[in-house]
Computed example of a mutant assay.
Amino acid sequence: MRSEQHASGPYAIVAVASSAGGIQGLGELLGGLGPDLPVPVLVVQHLDPRHRTLLAEVLARRTELYVKLAEDQEPVNPGTVYLAPPDRHLLVGPDGVLTLSNSELVHFVRPSADLLFESVAGAYGPGAIACVITGTGVDGSMGVEAVKSRGGTVIAEDPRTAQFTGMPKAAVDTGAVDFVLRIEEIAAAIRGLVEDKRQ
């Protein structure tokens, strides 16, 4: 089914990682993607596991895309944003079905951008786009290398303009990043990639 859905374009999925400053950054990024994005978007935002999150409701007010908390064994659909729930790793399989896991923390965090990116790389290979925006720590840096090694494309927010530099700088420092952009430029870059050859 995935190959039929995405046969007209080179990219099949976008995965985004953020931490500190991420709600504002995600609002900016998702808000620029428009209502008719032809691929799904998977998001890991580090959240306090002790509280129910309102992130989906907050982001839904900033984008025309459908935003929801990801559910275990849920198939992904184009034009939908799937958020990792608090304290659960978010993974995707080659069949485009999501898995939620409470396996061990990675770099002291769950959900882990590294695990999401690695699963996206394994499932989609060159059809994957990984994007790291504002956040502290190094989560996502191993994952972007996995995406790049499988032929995918990696975007990082410019650490010089990011609200929190840790995560985007760690990604850039791997040498696996294809585009280093200001947050307000990332949505247009993603749209340009996923809509390529779709005319």
Rank of each mutant, 00 (worst) to 15 (best):
Q24Y: 11
R61F: 00
L59N: 04
L91M: 02
H89A: 05
A162T: 06
L29A: 02
G27D: 12
S103P: 00
K169I: 01
A84I: 11
A12D: 13
F179C: 01
R182E: 03
A60L: 02
V144S: 10
S18R: 08
Q5G: 02
T165W: 13
V180N: 01
V180Y: 00
L115T: 12
A20F: 10
I23F: 11
G175W: 06
S119D: 09
V177F: 06
G127F: 00
V58D: 01
R110K: 14
L54I: 15
E4A: 10
K148D: 11
S8D: 13
K148A: 15
L42Q: 07
F117H: 06
P111T: 05
P38N: 10
G93T: 11
A146Y: 07
R52M: 07
R150T: 04
V39D: 04
I183A: 05
L37Y: 04
G125S: 15
Q5L: 15
L55K: 13
P35T: 01
R110T: 08
K68Q: 12
A128P: 03
R88C: 09
A121K: 11
A84K: 09
I133S: 03
G122Y: 07
G27M: 13
F108T: 10
K68R: 14
R2G: 13
G21Q: 10
S18G: 15
G122R: 15
S103V: 05
V147K: 01
V81E: 06
G166F: 09
S112N: 05
R2P: 00
A12H: 14
L55Q: 10
I13P: 00
P38T: 06
P40K: 04
D158P: 04
E185W: 03
V76L: 14
S101I: 03
M1A: 07
H46L: 02
G137A: 08
E71F: 12
S141G: 07
L181K: 05
G21N: 14
A176R: 01
G127K: 14
R191Y: 00
L29P: 02
K197G: 00
T53L: 11
V97E: 01
P85Y: 11
K169L: 15
V76T: 14
A60Q: 12
A170R: 07
L42T: 05
A146C: 10
P38D: 04
E28R: 15
Q199W: 11
G9K: 06
A15H: 07
A70P: 13
E118G: 05
G32M: 10
P35M: 04
C131F: 08
A188P: 00
L116V: 09
V120T: 03
A113L: 04
P94R: 08
V172P: 00
V41I: 14
P94A: 04
F117W: 09
Q45M: 01
T80Y: 13
E104K: 13
S3G: 03
I13M: 10
V41Y: 01
D72R: 14
V194A: 05
M142S: 13
V44H: 03
D173G: 06
E195M: 12
A56M: 03
H107D: 13
V81T: 06
T80V: 15
Q73H: 15
G93W: 01
R191M: 01
P159Q: 12
P86C: 10
Y11C: 09
G140W: 03
D95A: 12
L91P: 00
V109C: 10
P49S: 06
G27Y: 11
K68D: 05
V154C: 12
A20H: 04
A60V: 00
G152C: 11
P75S: 15
P10E: 13
S149E: 08
L100K: 07
H51C: 09
